[in-house]
Simulated assay, not measured.
Amino acid sequence: MAQQRPSTNGRDDVVEYIPALRAFARIFCRQPEEADDLVQETLMKALANLDKYEPGTKMKSWLFTIMRNTYCTRAKKNKRESVGVDESMVEKLVTQPSQEWSVHAREVQSALESLPVHHREILVLVLMLGETYEDAAEICGCPVGTVKSRLNRARRQLLLALNEPEAQPLDSVDA
């Protein structure tokens, strides 16, 4: 069994904290490659400035501070810099207008509100909240068959209200 020798220059101590630095980097970076880059840059800075480390203080805290500051500096720099785009691509970089989606969302909300309460309730429970037919039946106090019927009718009424081509007129029978 090999004995650990005390570190004479602090480099061994820095290397000992690489797993902790990798874990800490994942807080800042979602991509593992970006986290590894941040760890590498932190290690380079730490080793280059090892003479500024004060013995008796916590090495791990010192390294984490270097990493946090490195990340913040990177973030500020990335915010200021814009990546160059080929001029032929500039014409293709267009942001689509979002007004149409907003109008459509209001139409759907209005159509949903125009449904009878028992149809709207089933539609929200099953389609939006993801409840099972059985759970929806228990919540509404009706048989599972009624839930399925109401859901089918609610879907068709919603499609009709939104003037969707798949919609078929409903008969006047209501579940």
Score class of each variant (00 low, 15 high):
residue 134 E to V: 09
residue 69 N to Y: 14
residue 118 H to Q: 05
residue 14 V to Y: 03
residue 121 E to D: 04
residue 117 V to I: 11
residue 125 L to I: 02
residue 126 V to I: 05
residue 5 R to D: 13
residue 157 Q to F: 07
residue 63 L to Y: 05
residue 116 P to E: 05
residue 115 L to Y: 00
residue 9 N to L: 01
residue 12 D to R: 08
residue 127 L to Q: 10
residue 138 E to M: 10
residue 10 G to Y: 05
residue 102 S to K: 15
residue 90 V to Q: 11
residue 95 T to Y: 13
residue 10 G to R: 04
residue 66 I to W: 04
residue 36 D to V: 05
residue 22 R to I: 08
residue 45 K to A: 11
residue 109 Q to L: 13
residue 30 R to W: 06
residue 5 R to L: 15
residue 90 V to G: 02
residue 171 D to G: 09
residue 41 E to L: 13
residue 164 E to N: 10
residue 38 L to C: 09
residue 89 M to C: 05
residue 60 K to G: 04
residue 116 P to I: 00
residue 6 P to R: 15
residue 59 M to Q: 02
residue 112 L to C: 08
residue 162 L to C: 06
residue 91 E to M: 10
residue 142 C to W: 00
residue 153 R to W: 00
residue 134 E to K: 14
residue 110 S to C: 12
residue 147 V to S: 03
residue 33 E to S: 14
residue 159 L to W: 03
residue 129 L to K: 13
residue 121 E to F: 06
residue 169 P to N: 10
residue 141 G to T: 01
residue 93 L to A: 08
residue 115 L to G: 01
residue 42 T to E: 08
residue 91 E to Y: 04
residue 145 G to M: 11
residue 110 S to M: 06
residue 66 I to F: 07
residue 70 T to E: 12
residue 134 E to N: 06
residue 87 E to G: 09
residue 107 E to D: 14
residue 11 R to F: 12
residue 54 E to Q: 14
residue 90 V to C: 13
residue 126 V to S: 03
residue 150 R to K: 10
residue 107 E to V: 01
residue 37 D to G: 14
residue 170 L to I: 00
residue 13 D to W: 02
residue 81 E to D: 12
